[in-house]
Amino acid sequence: RRKSKRKPPPKKKMTGTLETQFTCPFCNHEKSCDVKMDRARNTGVISCTVCLEEFQTPITYLSEPVDVYSDWIDACE
């Protein structure tokens, strides 16, 4: 008699959501930077609500707010 092989359980999909508020690289306030994605103009704007620092970068249809933040961090270095 042959043993029946069980199929492995399906893999769980990533359910965690990406951050939309970030720590400002200038004033170091946590969750003080908000990202606005202007898909019509293909630009992402991130601004700090505390020190009013602002950064704008081009985006694509695949871009997420975390991509705008990482572009800002890269531009600071």
Results as ranks from 00 to 15, higher is better:
Tyr69Pro: 01
Tyr61Ile: 06
Val45His: 13
Lys7His: 15
Glu54Asp: 12
Leu52Ile: 06
Gln21Glu: 11
Arg1Gly: 08
Leu52Ala: 15
Ser47Lys: 09
Thr20Tyr: 06
Trp72Met: 04
Leu18Ala: 10
Ser63Gln: 06
Lys5Asn: 02
Cys24Trp: 01
Phe26Lys: 15
Pro8Gln: 13
Ser32Thr: 13
Cys76Val: 13
Lys31Phe: 04
Ile46Pro: 01
Ser32Ala: 10
Gln21Ile: 04
Lys31Asn: 15
Ala75Trp: 09
Val68Ser: 00
Leu52Trp: 06
Val35Lys: 01
Pro25Ile: 04
Tyr69Arg: 03
Cys51Ser: 01
Ser47Asn: 07
Phe22Tyr: 14
Met14Thr: 05
Phe26His: 00
Thr20Leu: 15
Val50Gln: 12
Glu53Arg: 11
Thr20Gln: 14
Arg1Glu: 02
Ala40His: 07
Lys11Pro: 13
Glu53Leu: 06
Arg39Asn: 00
Asp71Tyr: 04
Pro65Trp: 02
Val50Pro: 00
Leu52Thr: 15
Phe26Arg: 14
Lys3Leu: 09
Phe55Glu: 01
Tyr69Asn: 01
Cys51Met: 00
Cys27Thr: 01
Gly16Ile: 04
Gly16Thr: 10
Thr43Met: 07
Ala75Thr: 11
Gly16Met: 08
Ile46Arg: 02
Thr15Lys: 11
Asp38Val: 06
Ala40Asn: 02
Thr49Glu: 12
Asn42His: 14
Thr49Asp: 08
Thr49Asn: 14
Glu53Gln: 14
Pro9Lys: 08
Lys31Leu: 09
Ser63Asn: 06
Ser47His: 08
Ser70Asp: 12
Asp74Phe: 05
Thr23Glu: 09
Lys7Cys: 08
Glu30Pro: 10
Cys33Trp: 01
Gln56Asn: 15
Lys7Ser: 08
His29Asp: 10
Lys3Gly: 06
Cys76Thr: 12
Cys48Leu: 00
Cys33Ile: 05
Pro10Leu: 09
Cys24Lys: 01
Arg2Ala: 07
Gly16Asp: 08
Cys48Gly: 00
Phe22Arg: 03
Ala40Pro: 03
Thr15Cys: 09
Lys31Glu: 06
Pro10Asp: 01
Tyr61Phe: 15
Asp34Thr: 09
Tyr69Ile: 02
Lys12Thr: 09
Asp38Cys: 00
Arg6Ile: 06
Arg2Gly: 10
Pro9Gly: 12
Thr23Trp: 08
Thr60Trp: 03
Cys27Glu: 01
Leu18Met: 08
Tyr61Trp: 11
Thr15Asp: 01
Val50Glu: 14
Trp72Gly: 02
Lys5Leu: 03
Asp67Pro: 03
Val45Glu: 14
Thr15Asn: 08
Leu62Asn: 14
Asp34Glu: 10
Arg2Tyr: 11
Pro9Asn: 09
Tyr61Pro: 15
Lys13Ile: 06
Leu18Gln: 13
Pro10Trp: 00
Trp72Asn: 00
Phe55Val: 03
Asn28Pro: 04
Thr60His: 09
Pro25Thr: 03
Leu62Asp: 12
Ser4Asn: 08
Cys48Ile: 00
Glu19Arg: 11
Asp38Arg: 04
Ile59Phe: 00
Phe55Ala: 02
Arg39Phe: 07
Arg39Lys: 14
Met37Lys: 01
Asp71Ser: 07
Arg41Ala: 11
Gln56Leu: 07
Ser70Val: 11
His29Ala: 11
Cys27Asn: 02
Arg39Gln: 12
Gln21Asn: 09
Lys11Thr: 09
Asn42Gln: 10
Val35Pro: 04
Cys48Gln: 00
Ala75His: 11
Val66Tyr: 04
Met37Leu: 06
Lys31Thr: 03
Asp71Ile: 08
Arg41Pro: 03
Lys7Trp: 01
Thr49His: 05
Thr43Asp: 05
Ser32Leu: 09
Phe55Ile: 15
Ser4Pro: 04
Val50Asp: 10
Trp72Thr: 02
Pro65Asn: 15
Glu19Phe: 05
Leu52Lys: 11
Gln56Ile: 10
Phe26Met: 10
Asp74Ser: 14
Tyr61Gly: 14
Ile59Val: 07
Arg1Lys: 12
Thr57Leu: 02
Pro10Gly: 07
Asn42Phe: 05
Asp34Cys: 06
Gly16Cys: 07
Lys11Ile: 05
Ser70Ala: 14
Lys12Pro: 06
Gly44Phe: 00
Thr60Leu: 05
Ala75Asp: 08
Thr60Ala: 07
Phe55Pro: 00
Ser47Trp: 10
Gly16Leu: 09
Asp74Arg: 14
Phe26Ser: 09
Val50Tyr: 12
Tyr61Cys: 12
Thr23Ile: 10
Ala40Phe: 12
Ser47Thr: 10
Tyr61Glu: 13
Pro8Asn: 15
Val68Gly: 01
Gly44Ser: 05
Val45Tyr: 02
